[in-house]
Design a binder for these strands. Structure first.
Lengths: 332, 332
DNA sequence: TATTGTTATGTTACAGGTAACATTCCATAG
DNA sequence: CTATGGAATGTTACCTGTAACATAACAATA
C-alpha cells in the first residue's frame, strides 16, 4: 500500500490522458479547453479531490493576489471592524487576505511581516506608524505597496489612512470642559502610540483652559474590569475628580458600572467619555459619550487605496484623514 | 537602472563568495558554518535585507510548520479568546498560525480551507462540525490532522474539543426554573449549529418541567442593540415573560439595558441569563448570570492535541469535553 | 487547391531553497 | 610519514504549475 500523496496536476492529467498543461488551463478558465474535455477533467478533479498548490506560483514570482494585514490585537473589537471593512473591498476585488497580530510589539510586528512576506503577499496593511529599522528595510526590499492605518499624525512609510487621535481627543475634552467639568482625569491602558496621542490631546485641551492634568495609567490590556479598577484608584488619588476621559469605550464603560455600584450619579457627580463608539455604548444606560471613529470605513478606504496601487496607480493622497464624530450621549 | 528584485540566497552567496548552500545552513543554524563565515554572512544578509522565501520549501513537500485556524467570525469575542489559547501553545511549540474566517457559511468555509491547504499547512483547526462534502473530501485528501473545536456533540471528522452546548443550556435553564421562573423565553440570533443546540437544551429543560417553549429568533448577527430589540419584541408577543435565556452574553446584556430603560427590575420582574461569561458580565450592574465556557482552554487543549498529532502521536481521546460552569450572578 | 486563421493541445524551461551525497583540508594518531 | 576522522563547504537533483512558444488539425476563404 503506497503512502498517500497530495494529488498533482500530473495525476489528474494521467487519468484524463492529456498533459498537465491542459488541466492547468481548465482550472484557470474552463473555456480554454473543449467542452468534452471539460467534462472529463471535471470528473477527474472531483475523483482525486485535487487541491490547488500555490507553491510553484510563488516560486515563479507570480502575483499571489494575497494581501497581508497586521493588527495589534484580535481581541480588540476595533480591529475586527476595520478588518470587516477591508474584506468587504478585497473580497469584491478578488484578493485574499492573510492576517497576523503582534500584540502591540514592534519586534513581533517585524516577525509577522517577515512571515507574511515569505509567502509573497502583494501588498501590506499595517496598524501602526512605529516600526523597527529592520521592518523598514524589509518593506523597502520587498518593494510592495504598504499602507498604515488608524492614525494620520506621523506616517512612517508611504501612505496613511485613519483619524487624528490627538485632535479628536482634544475636541472631546474641550466639549467636557465647555460643560463645566474642571477636574477631568485621563484613563489609559496598554501604552501604545494611539493611547499616548489621546493623552496629548487631553493635555492640550486642559492646558489651554488652565486646568491641571492628571492621568491614571496602566500597561495592562484594556477591559471592563480594568475600567472599574482605574476609577477606584482615581477617586482614591484625586477625590475631587468630576470627569473621566478614557482612551477607549471599554475603560469608560467599566468605570461607569463601578460608579453605579458606588451610587455615583452620571453625569451629575462624574462625567465619563470614551473613544470609538462601539454598539454597546448606545445601548447602555446612560448612553456613553464617545469619540466615534469610522472603523469600518478606515478599512474600506485602506483596502481601496491599496488595490488601486496594486493596479499600478500612483499615490494621490499620502494622508487620508477620515474624521471623527463627537457624540455627547448621556454620560457627560 | 535595473528593476529591483527580491534578493535570493544566491545574491547573498555572491557577496560572501560561497555557494548558497552555505548561506542556507547559516540561516537555519548559524553553528553549522565557521565563525568567521557567520560574521561575513550576517553582514551580507543585513546589507541586502534578505527575506526568507517559503515557496521552494512548500514545493518540495517540506513541513511548513504552519497550522490553519478557521473561525466563523473575528468580531465574535469568543473566538479571539479561543485563538489566544491556541497561540499560547503554538507559539511555544514553534508553529505559525494562519487564520481565516467564514461568516458561519459552510460554502465559505470550503473556500477558506482550500486556500489554507494551497499553502501546505501541516494541520487544521475548525470551529464547526458541519461541512460540505467537498470540504470533507479535501481534508481527507490533504491527509493532515484536523480538530473540530467548540461543541463535542457530533464531531464529523476525527477529533473534537469543546463543551456540550445542549447540556450546558439545559443546566442553566433548569437552574432558572428551580428559582421559580415559569415563562422563560429563548433569545437566539444568527442561527448556527451551536445556537440551535442551546435552543434544544432550553427546550429539554422546559419540557421536562411541563413548561411551554417560546423562542424569539432572528438571523441577524448578535449585538447589544439586537438584544434590546429582541426583548421589546418578546414582551409584545409574550407579556407574561418572566425570564430570558439568551444564546450569548451580548443579547443578554442588551436585553438587560433595555429592561433598565423600561424600568423593569432585574431579576424580580424579569430574569436574564447569557452564555459564555465575558468580562463585561462581571462588571455590569447587575452581574450577569451566564454559562461560563472555558474559551481560552478550548484553544489551548486543541492546539496541544494537534501538535501532539503532528509529532506523530495517535489520537487518545476522540472527544474532549472541557465542561462549563453555571454562574448565577445577580440577574436570575 | 493553396492559404490563412482559429482552436485545442503539447513541449520546454524556469522559479529558489534544501536533502543527500561528495569533496576538500587539516589535525591528530599510529 | 601515512592513515583516519571530522569539520566546512560544494554539487546535484528535485519539488509543481505556468508563460511562452510550438504544433496539429481542421474550417473558412481566395
Amino acid at each position: 500500500m503506497s503512502k498517500k500523496r497530495r494529488p498533482t496536476l500530473q495525476d489528474v492529467a494521467n487519468i484524463v490522458g492529456v498533459t498537465k498543461m491542459t488541466i492547468s488551463r481548465y482550472l484557470r478558465d474552463p473555456q480554454q479547453v473543449s467542452s468534452e474535455m471539460q467534462k472529463k477533467i471535471s470528473l477527474a478533479v472531483e475523483e482525486l479531490g485535487y487541491i490547488p498548490n500555490r507553491a510553484p506560483d510563488l516560486l515563479s514570482n507570480a502575483k499571489s493576489h494575497a494581501i497581508g494585514i497586521l493588527v495589534p490585537s484580535l481581541t480588540n473589537q476595533v480591529f475586527s471592524e476595520v478588518i470587516r471593512g477591508i474584506e468587504r473591498v478585497t473580497e469584491a476585488a478578488g484578493y485574499q487576505t492573510m492576517f497576523a497580530h503582534y500584540g502591540y510589539s514592534a519586534e513581533l510586528e517585524e516577525k509577522r511581516i517577515s512571515f507574511l512576506l515569505s509567502y509573497h503577499i502583494d501588498g501590506l496593511i499595517l496598524s501602526e506608524s512605529h516600526h523597527t529599522p529592520r521592518t523598514l528595510k524589509m518593506i523597502e526590499t520587498a518593494g510592495i505597496p504598504v499602507i498604515e492605518m488608524m492614525d494620520v499624525a506621523s506616517p512612517a512609510i508611504e501612505q496613511a489612512v485613519g483619524v487624528d487621535n490627538l485632535e479628536a481627543s482634544y475636541q472631546m475634552v474641550s466639549a467636557m470642559i465647555a460643560k463645566g467639568y474642571q477636574h477631568i482625569v485621563y484613563l489609559g491602558a496598554r501604552l501604545d502610540t494611539r493611547t499616548k496621542l489621546r493623552q496629548q490631546g487631553y493635555e492640550k485641551a486642559m492646558r489651554e483652559h488652565g486646568l491641571s492634568c492628571k492621568s491614571m495609567m496602566t500597561e495592562a490590556a484594556s477591559s471592563f474590569s480594568l475600567g472599574a479598577e482605574l476609577l477606584t484608584r482615581t477617586l482614591a488619588a484625586h477625590p475631587k475628580t468630576d470627569g473621566l476621559f478614557c482612551t477607549n469605550d471599554d475603560l469608560a464603560i467599566g468605570a461607569i458600572f463601578e460608579a453605579q455600584r458606588m451610587g455615583l450619579k452620571i453625569p451629575e457627580q462624574i462625567a465619563v467619555a470614551g473613544f470609538h463608539g462601539h454598539d454597546i455604548g448606545q445601548s447602555m444606560v446612560p448612553k456613553l459619550a464617545t469619540v466615534v471613529t469610522p472603523r469600518e470605513k478606515i478599512g474600506q478606504v485602506t483596502a481601496q487605496q491599496l488595490i488601486a496601487r496594486l493596479a499600478g496607480e500612483a499615490i494621490t493622497e499620502a494622508v487620508i484623514d477620515l474624521g471623527v464624530e463627537i457624540r455627547h450621549g448621556e454620560s457627560i
